[in-house]
Design a protein around this nucleic acid. Structure first.
Length: 642
RNA sequence: GCCGCGCUAGCUCAGUCGGUAGAGCAGCCGAUUUGUAAUCGGCAGGCCGCGGGUUCGAAUCCUGCGCGCGGCACCA
């Protein structure tokens, strides 16, 4: 029997009997490793531990503690779920069950809906399967035989998957106990290795193969971890996310409300609208300082303009239409671009006017599908921080760089330092010449790299009218939100006949750059609420300070203090109610007011305030003037980038 | 839009077998003048999402619609 030379992760070379398995290798190395081993990496590819090793090369034993080990656990949890489901409900069909972030799911076809009781039964059965510690074995099958087998079992989806697997790929099945599933693998050596740190979370509908024209399957979501401790930590993170939910905080903090007569539109209450205005004023200040001009364009525009822009044909379904007398049809604008082009076209533009950066806090309406609505994050009426930059092709690079700098500085001011960029280049079906695309794509990529941003490529995902950048920010608990966007458009200036006169007196088409930083104020404020869990930094807080009295003796003094805070531009409120100070403190703490100024007889006599910050147990005695000075400074709108 | 689940007081929720509805908190009123996360007492509050049906009788059963929630699909 010959030997092969295996290169271990530490660089050492180990002779090994040809045909021995990963499990043998682990056992050779140490008993503890043999116990912990769940798979093996051979030349970079993850394999089953039971697979014979036949060639020289780099190998690495994978344990449960490796990132890959966690994926194996999740994948096996999906198989255990499918096995449990087949045992409990033999009439169902199984389809696919991949690993996803934090866990796994499995899609089933079954006439009856799964109930919460079913989930509990399935989870119980999964635990039994772990206890049975069934060997998980890989089998290579003949394609037709495998398809016949699954058809015979009534598993038509599996047979369909087999028929769609490229003919050069082997058909592998994994057997655990009496259960056989089509799967590429690899898997853990046995179901006992899965452990029990998993939980079935929910049932949901999902289209077969993700296509809405296909039948709907039942998807069971689960989460799976290496240890109970990790599982608990994950469940706690979910609870934390729920506590931060902007819909809940919006109600509790009196920021906004939603009601069914205006599904998808926000009723901003005074405090929420204050927050909105603070964000808008801040954005206006930044845009003014960055060479933008602000405009306002009509909400309702004649159908003819939407036909000319191409929206009527492509997006009619999503537009709200208003009928007027004399048979005229108007549409509520779903976007601001056509309006901005109309302003651009007033008078003849020279190359000297470019780049022209035209901004609008534009209220747009889109008839989003009912299932898409989500709090204030996904709505039908929203306000974009929109702008269109009319530029020459040569100006695209500089404008993109300028935009990236502005965007990162604004995100940083709002407390987001972590920004990811997704770059989408030319799709199959597109307008414009390849040379122009080359130029635009290069311009975007260069600018993003120059800004030092992390880029993810989405090949072929660009709009038909040009390539685009999407800016994703990461919040305090690690969730990603797409907010900013930057799109190059070669088409709209053409369709709406926008031109400028170049150096030699020729009429030319400008390039239009569509861009937004917050995306929509509604969505961005939703993200802000969740990011800060409602505990806003002072400059954003709708109520920055409450002046609260201990006894009514201090009422006049409290009024005077509050008036001074307001004169200094602070958003202060007065609480003179006949309540104990402990009660007032609790109430304003629950309302997440960042600062309380408590005044009683002592403060009134000394001209001081007892300043207490949200979340802190202590207070600070300060002269009124000093407290105002401190708070004003802290409440100043961030000036980064100015 | 699709699948599933839900909708009871401002909020969170209970409501048995079909017999015309309950709690806590919030609110209002009164007492209390209080020193840093809940003072005490009282009162008021409901088209049980909306419409139709079954029934002597419907919050409860059936049905249509609306809205919400979790996903899927969508996101110019």
């Amino acid at each position: 029997m010959s030997e092969i030379a295996l290169t271990m992760p530490d660089g050492s070379v180990r002779p090994f009997a040809r045909g021995g398995t990963g499990a043998d290798l682990a056992a050779d190395i140490s008993r503890s490793l043999a116990k912990r081993a769940v798979a093996i990496r051979v030349g970079g590819a993850l394999r089953d531990l039971a697979e014979p090793l036949t060639e020289d090369g780099a190998v690495e034993i994978v344990t449960r503690d490796d990132p890959d080990g966690l994926d194996l656990i999740r994948h096996d949890a999906a198989h255990a779920l499918a096995e449990a489901a087949k045992e409990l409900y033999p009439e169902i069909q199984i389809t696919i069950g991949p690993v996803i972030e934090n866990g796994f799911y499995y899609d089933f076809s079954r006439a009856e809906p799964f109930t919460p009781d079913d989930l509990a039964r399935l989870e119980e059965r999964m635990r039994e399967i772990v206890d049975r510690d069934e060997l998980i074995a890989r089998e290579v099958w003949d394609r037709d035989e495998a398809a016949r087998f699954f058809e015979g079992e009534g598993e038509h989806y599996k047979a369909e998957i087999i028929r769609s697997i490229p003919s050069e790929e082997p058909i592998t099945l994994y057997r655990q106990g009496g259960f056989l599933d089509l799967c590429r693998g690899p898997h853990l050596p046995s179901t006992g290795r899965l452990g029990k740190a998993f939980k079935l979370m929910s049932v949901a509908g999902a289209y077969w193969r993700g296509d809405h024209r296909n039948e709907m399957l039942q998807r069971i979501y689960g989460t799976a971890w290496r240890t109970e401790k990790e599982l608990r930590a994950y469940l706690e993170r979910l609870e934390e996310a729920e506590r931060r939910d902007h819909r809940r905080l919006g109600r509790e903090m009196g920021l906004f409300h939603l009601q069914e007569e205006a599904a998808g539109s926000v009723f901003w209450m005074p405090k929420g609208w204050t927050l909105f205005r603070v964000c808008e004023d801040y954005m206006r200040m930044r845009l003014d300082a960055n060479g933008y001009v602000e405009v306002k364009t009509p909400q309702l525009l004649d159908r003819a303009l939407w036909e000319a822009s191409g929206h009527w044909e492509k997006f009619r379904e999503h537009m709200f239409v208003a009928e007027a007398a004399e048979d005229r049809l108007f549409a509520l604008k779903p976007m601001n671009c056509p309006g901005h082009v109309q302003i651009f076209k007033q008078g003849i533009k020279s190359y000297r006017d470019l780049p022209l950066r035209m901004a609008e806090f534009g209220a747009c309406h889109r008839n989003e599908p009912s299932g898409a609505l989500h709090g204030i994050m996904r709505v039908r009426a929203f306000t974009q921080d929109d702008a269109h930059i009319f530029a020459t092709e040569d100006q695209v690079t500089a404008e993109t760089e300028r935009f990236c700098a502005l965007l990162t500085s604004i995100y940083a001011d709002f407390g987001f330092e972590d920004v990811l960029v997704k770059f989408s280049d030319r799709p199959e079906v597109r307008a414009g010449e390849d040379g122009v695309w080359d130029k635009a794509e290069t311009a975007l990529l260069d600018a993003v790299n120059a800004a030092g941003l992390e880029v993810e490529l989405n090949p072929g995902e660009g709009a038909f009218y040009g390539p685009k950048l999407e800016f994703v920010l990461r919040d305090a608990i690690g969730r990603d939100w797409q907010c900013g966007t930057f799109q190059v458009d070669f088409v709209l200036p053409e369709r709406l006949n926008a031109t400028y006169v170049d150096e030699s007196g020729e009429r030319r088409r400008p390039v239009m750059l569509h861009r937004a930083i917050l995306g929509s104020f509604e969505r961005f404020i939703g993200v802000l609420i969740e990011h800060y869990a409602g505990r806003f930094p002072l400059w954003l807080a709708p109520v920055q300070a409450v002046v609260a009295t201990i006894t009514s003796d201090a009422d006049d003094y409290a009024r005077a203090v509050c008036a001074r805070l307001r004169e200094a531009g602070l958003r202060a409120e007065l609480d003179l109610r006949n309540e104990k100070i402990g009660y007032k403190v609790r109430e304003h703490s629950v309302a997440k007011v960042p600062v309380m100024l408590v005044v009683g007889r002592r403060e009134a006599e000394q001209g001081t305030v007892a300043l207490r910050r949200l979340g802190s147990q202590q207070q600070e005695m300060l002269a009124v003037g000093d407290s105002i000075h401190t708070l004003s400074e802290e409440a100043a709108v961030p000036s980064r980038g100015r």
